[in-house]
Amino acid sequence: MAVTVKIPTQLRATTGGQADLSAEGSTVGEVLDAVFAEHGDLRDRITENGELRRFVNVYVGGEDIRFGEGLATAVSDGAEVTILPAVAGG
């Protein structure tokens, strides 16, 4: 199942500047693994020991996966996965 992964500005250096990536997978974890296979640096930026870092939120269809099944949260075909780190700029 193909989903769109949205990469925020401050992480785009790890994706060659790409803002939207297309990836396959039936859970958030699978989708991210597919993305990491292409963009290894992103893995280091947002995960630690296979878990999402606490300051990075991931949303599927506008819902934070922390309040769902975490990385096991299911994604449907055409879903939008948003990666969102906290930003403090003012």
């Binding site: 401050q10 300051f55 990075v56 939120n57 780190p85 906290a86 403090a88």
Partner: peptide
Amino acid sequence: LYPTPPPPELAPSCSANGV
């Protein structure tokens, strides 16, 4: 929303990144 802040090396600022 954000249980913890990112570590400084991963906390970009406008002065370093532009806006």
